[in-house]
Design a protein around this nucleic acid. Structure first.
Lengths: 251, 251
DNA sequence: CGGAGGCTTGAGCGCCATCAACGAGTGTGG
DNA sequence: CCACACTCGTTGATGGCGCTCAAGCCTCCG
């Protein structure tokens, strides 16, 4: 379990950076991870709200076990899940700057994490430009992911959205070497998936059935089995983050 | 025109930061703006692609006149406009880190801007922690905006999306003191608005007509007139960025 | 004047939401 | 051990929001 923790803490696995920035970003990542490791490890049960939308000076998290998600609830009860956080993700860097959370952060299942206070993080960044650069890289990565998700719900239909979503989680888990085969645990209810993809639970259920009948994807409870990776990629309409990220540029 | 440029270059107007970070962020903003001012001013015609999705080492922009947008086209021709950039916005900070653009950046009308190369920007950040902090603040602001937009297209219907969108642009322009009254120029075609909001041009047209009949909003060509600000806010279902941002916290 | 780009309007349909009922799995307490 | 409650998922019936197709209008401009 310890080596697994080590590898997943790499973060940003598989992402490439600008020529000339790579070494700094990676060095900053090591330093940032080290700082997190010195913080006490906490855990949270499924459904726990780590940060509420109105929390003052919320901390910065690094997950090392379990899934979480960023969510926002409308006054009338509708809810949107903006982003899914996986083991190894750093969440809430924006908190350290803005001093407030714009959304809830909620544990999707049993969670293990460490956190730093905003002033601690700012001190780290002030002391080490590499850490600041890594923080920027983390934010850039998050934003790229959110952009892709925005594209998906702007222009893809339900089937394409689900295919894209599943592939996205799959590839993130794979890059961190948390899984090796096209099967993984997805600790989200269909209602949560619906809130993420802008659908209803009923329609998620139907669409999953359809994908199963097409022999593309099998989802039973929280177990996802990708039956036809290429087929699923074809459905994802070019939004699956293809393997063109592999070439690591060193400046 | 010069004083207008000065005020709009403030950037981040009206946004508050974490206690203890505010002064640094603002100082960094001044330094960053100064660096941009030393770059030559360029201009681009409507429709010009400033950055293509495959551009290597794309520059970082600061707009000082005109609108632009970040867009992504799917292989089959569908298109999503992920974000709208206004005068004063800094675009492409992520480029400086990732070394590539994930989307196109396109001028919506006659554009005036300045740009910095990724290495130049990284040098600035390395030399001044305040600039790095400001860069983080800019990215945090952009991400917060994208999150709101994601929520909108995840859970709002067409009428609510348009109300939210118009209010969002209105408030960004107001915070930068580019406008003083609830009327402004929106240099986007209805097709571009549709691509931003996940609708079709036809339905945007119909929904605008409806909002006009309801005496909430008048849009003619590129002129937007908000007829009933409170009414429009009510339609926006709590997603309008309310004035709770006004209290500036100084640490 | 003709063409192009952008907007409007109508008719018809389809994807997805809504409503509703039921089934399966799990935990709890009697 | 079973009744019960509860959450989560499945399936069917129905309807509506928004898409598609299509035609026509307006404005700008060469």
């Amino acid at each position: 379990m310890e080596n697994r923790t080590d590898s997943l803490l790499e973060g940003l696995g598989g992402v490439t950076f600008a020529a000339g920035a790579t070494e700094d970003v990676l060095a900053g990542g090591r330093q940032l991870r080290q700082a997190f490791r010195e913080a006490p490890r906490r855990s949270a049960d499924r459904g726990t709200m780590l940060v509420g939308a109105e929390t003052r000076d919320p901390p910065v998290f690094m997950l090392d076990r379990g899934f979480a998600y960023r969510a926002f609830s409308l006054p009338d009860g509708r809810r949107a899940i903006v982003d899914i956080l996986l083991p190894g993700d750093v969440a809430g860097l924006d908190h350290a700057i803005l001093g407030r959370a714009t959304h809830d952060v909620i544990a999707a299942n049993m969670l293990g994490y460490r956190s730093l206070s905003p002033p601690a993080l700012r001190d780290l960044m002030a002391a080490s430009p590499s850490i600041a650069l890594h923080a920027l890289a983390l934010m850039a990565e998050t934003r790229a992911r959110c952009d892709s998700h925005t594209i998906a719900i702007t222009r893809l239909d339900a089937r394409e959205r689900i295919a894209t979503f599943v592939l996205g989680v799959y590839q993130r888990l794979r890059r961190r070497e948390l899984i090796a085969r096209p099967t993984f645990n997805l600790p989200l209810t269909q209602e949560q998936v619906a809130d993420h993809l802008g659908l209803t639970m009923v329609h998620v259920s139907r669409t999953l059935r359809r994908l199963r009948e097409e022999r593309l994807l099998h989802v039973d409870r929280q177990v996802v089995i990708i039956l036809d990776l290429d087929g699923l990629r074809a459905v994802a309409a070019g939004l699956s983050v293809a393997p063109h990220r592999l070439a690591l540029e060193i400046g």
